[in-house]
Design a binder for these strands. Structure first.
Length: 504
RNA sequence: CGGGGCGUAGCUCAGCUUGGUAGAGCGCGUGCUUUGGGAGCAUGAGGCCGCAGGUUCGAAUCCUGUCGCCCCGACCA
């Protein structure tokens, strides 16, 4: 009986495992519309913490928030040639604005009289609608830089959706900035990339490699794209965030110019950058286990759950102690915010049930307190990362919780880093390269190999192995990675190693 | 859009071959007993058997059509 209460193990079926964790941890459900997702309160709480932390970081670096509309005239998308190529295949289109009763029966039909003169697309990203506005906002170099972010939903009509990792509608932030010079825009993309990397590592406990995308993998319409790439527990790469230098492409497409201090009229330089609810999927894939969700304390919806044990005569005293601990914890800040505590005082459920219940939902620490503890003036504390339960004196609980949360955050990062390092390899022969990616379904880790820099080779490697270039690291993982060599596929000269992996 | 599978209770599924009153487990309600790693007993509620036609005295079951979902490929954050 206990068996069907858990989730499929990662080893047995990684895809099923992921899906079941999302559902059993109460994070999200599929909607009735294919590809769309209901984000439940427990999942949305994670997003709120991500959003709040990132928003602070953006504001600290001079960005402000605004909101641009959901609907974009169809013609806008085609103003930038590469951009339309990249997104045209996955757009939802609004063609009518009215329904009517079906003259032939029940229900409603689209009113053919209500056809739109110009069809609208639901934003797959907002560059076009935003740059249409920027044309009017930017006149002079004094208006620059323009540093704007928006929190929004976007829609990309996905054929193979997966909860959080790839959904038709998703939540994200998209930053859109305008600058007077190429160099300033370049600095902006790198500043944001650094924020993304710091957020992934310090908040999500997910080590990432920051690098530049090959031309084949860059954003449609960008001059070049930076990325942070994480590794999942099935040894694949997942793109966790991107920051694009758009050059003058959108400025030219939307005719956005400014007058320089010297009185010359010039096109502005642009950047755009985003992270999405995919981060939640990334976090799950990086940390969770066969008992359910594992959450970094800084993002956990609930950091501490208290399970009071005992009923009847013991109940009142135990509850009194429980409520005191809860109140004390809530009055304490950890990492700058009040500690998030839940008291599970349900009387119908057994303690054992509650332990499993909250483990599945990714609560970091559990405090058990019963009559026996109370008699000795202590409580039991257990970590979601395992290890032995510890006994704590009641007057030490606050400091112990803070310390345990610190340790948890650090240990989780170290564990993910160890996984990545153990599955990152350098390969110099084509045979070895193919073997590395040979397993059906599975990943193969990160393979650092030499590449001749051509699109043809990239395509050929991808066709043969399903592995793609995830990025060219900004900083080599090992100094030797930047020593010249020969391409693993073509044998032509190569300047440095790049990262290949199968990707989500 | 190709290849495979599946639609029966909130969830996971049995029943279909061979037509005859709609089933199980989990979950849910109620009552009693239980509480230190997924409690027990009792009792109840819950169904247009995906949808539409057809065959038949009679269809979850057979036939035709249709819609939807899942998995694997091509495309993507």
């Amino acid at each position: 009986m206990a068996k069907d209460l858990g989730v499929t193990s990662r080893e047995e079926n990684y895809a099923d495992w992921y899906n079941e964790v999302v559902k059993r941890a109460d994070l999200a459900d599929n909607s009735v519309v294919r590809g769309c997702m209901v984000i439940k309160p427990h999942g949305y709480a994670i997003w709120e913490h991500m959003r709040d932390a990132l928003d602070r970081m953006f504001k600290e670096t001079g960005h402000v928030n605004a909101y641009f509309p959901l609907l974009i005239p169809k013609s806008f998308l085609s103003k930038e040639a590469e951009h339309v190529d990249g997104f045209a295949k996955e757009c939802a289109i609004v063609t009518h604005h009215r329904l009517m009763n079906d003259p032939n029966g029940k229900g409603v039909v689209v009113d053919p009289e209500a056809k739109l003169e110009e069809e609208l697309i639901i934003r797959p990203t907002s560059e076009t609608i935003i740059w249409h506005s920027y044309k009017n906002w930017i006149q002079s170099y004094r208006d620059l830089p323009l540093l704007i972010n928006q929190w929004a939903n976007v829609m990309r009509w996905e054929l193979r959706p997966r909860l959080f990792l790839r959904t038709a509608e998703f939540l994200w932030q998209e930053g859109h900035t305008a600058h007077a010079t190429y160099e300033e825009a370049e600095q902006e993309t790198l500043t944001i990339l650094e924020i993304y990397k710091r957020f992934a590592e310090e908040w999500m406990c997910v080590p990432v490699i920051d690098g530049i995308k090959s031309d084949g993998e860059k954003f449609a319409g960008a001059d070049h794209t930076y990325t942070i790439e994480a590794m999942t527990q099935d040894f694949r790469a997942i793109q966790a965030g991107t920051s694009h230098h758009l050059g003058q492409n959108f400025a030219k497409a939307f005719d956005v110019t400014f007058q320089s201090a010297e009185g010359k009229r010039e096109y502005v330089y642009a950047t755009s950058w985003g992270v999405s609810t995919r981060l939640i999927g990334t976090m799950i894939m990086a940390h969770s286990d066969d008992n359910g969700l594992v959450c970094p304390p800084k993002l956990a919806p609930i950091q501490v759950v208290i399970v009071p044990i005992g009923r009847g005569d013991d109940r009142a005293a135990v509850m009194e102690a429980t409520d005191k601990i809860a109140a004390d914890l809530k009055a304490t800040t950890w990492s700058g915010l009040p500690i998030r505590v839940k008291v599970d005082d349900r009387e119908k459920e057994s303690p054992g049930f509650k332990y499993n219940y909250w483990e599945m939902r990714g609560v970091c620490l559990r405090i058990e307190i019963g009559p026996r503890d109370l008699a000795e003036g202590k409580a039991v504390i257990a970590s979601r990362l395992g290890g032995d339960k510890k006994e704590v004196q009641l007057d030490q609980i606050i400091s112990t919780v803070a310390t345990e949360l610190d340790n948890f955050q650090r240990a989780l990062y170290q564990r993910a880093l160890a996984l990545r390092e153990a599955n990152t390899h350098r390969v110099d022969s084509w045979e070895e390269f193919q073997t590395a990616f040979a397993q059906e379904g599975g990943g193969g880790g990160f393979i650092l190999a030499h590449w001749d820099g051509t699109q043809e080779t990239e395509d050929a490697i991808s066709a043969a192995t399903k592995a793609t270039i995830r990025c060219i690291p900004l900083i080599p993982l090992d100094p030797k990675d930047n020593e010249p060599g020969v391409c693993v596929y073509s044998g032509k000269p190569s300047q440095k190693r790049v990262i290949f992996a199968k990707a989500y």
